[in-house]
Design a protein around this nucleic acid. Structure first.
Lengths: 107, 107
DNA sequence: TCAATCCATAGCCAACCAGGTATGAGTCCG
DNA sequence: CGGACTCATACCTGGTTGGCTATGGATTGA
């Protein structure tokens, strides 16, 4: 029941968390401290969100001294794209069925 | 802050709600009663979820006698596709920047 | 008209979770 | 070594919400 896109929807549903992921996509690799600035929430909260993003495969971390650099893993969005494509596909096939039906009725 | 894709992520994050939308995509127009079967939850819960899906623009309803028919509005997924494309675009442009940098360094 | 059916709303409750503060582990520098 | 800094974890709490039952409005059919 719970497939690959489930964790993505659940993880990206939170605005704060999604904003962090967006910043990593826009700005590239960043430290926790840099992300905390203008995040609107405290540093521990940022860390927790980054942990969930990492658990979802949306980001990866790299330790260097005192700093932890996070970066977006864009490939992780694939199941999301697949899901939307699948939904569109169902819709399209039903549309095709209707067209077929109309075409057969036309004869 | 809260843009078009926000409500979509929030609405589709719930598994039960997403399953209802999926069924409407796969099977086409259905009544509340038909959706309640094999939904795993009670009818009022199904009605509430359908209400939220409607509020998000993901489904539309049509009343006919005692029945209410719901159907998927696939176009509503567009902001989701746009968002993923935008994220991919940022990633790609940063990759291009890196390539440019490497190219210039190579000279 | 009266019973049955379909659906939505209201009210309630338990579970989840995003936010905070406190704190500790690890690292750099003087 | 000692202090400052970076980050993660632990713990608590208030708000949100997904589930339920109860109920009522609307419609159909006998």
């Amino acid at each position: 029941m719970s497939e690959a896109h489930d964790v993505l929807f659940r993880t990206l549903a939170d605005p704060t968390r999604r904003a962090l992921f967006e910043r990593l996509c826009r700005e590239g690799e960043r430290t926790v401290g840099a992300l905390t600035e203008r995040a609107g929430v405290s540093q521990p909260v940022v860390s927790k969100h980054l942990g969930l993003l990492k658990q979802a495969g949306l980001v990866r971390d790299r330790h260097q001294g005192r700093h932890t650099y996070y970066s977006a893993q864009l490939g992780a969005l694939a199941p999301l794209v697949d899901w939307t494509s699948e939904m569109a596909g169902f819709w399209q096939s039903r549309f095709d069925d209707l067209e077929d039906l109309l075409k057969r009725m036309d004869q």
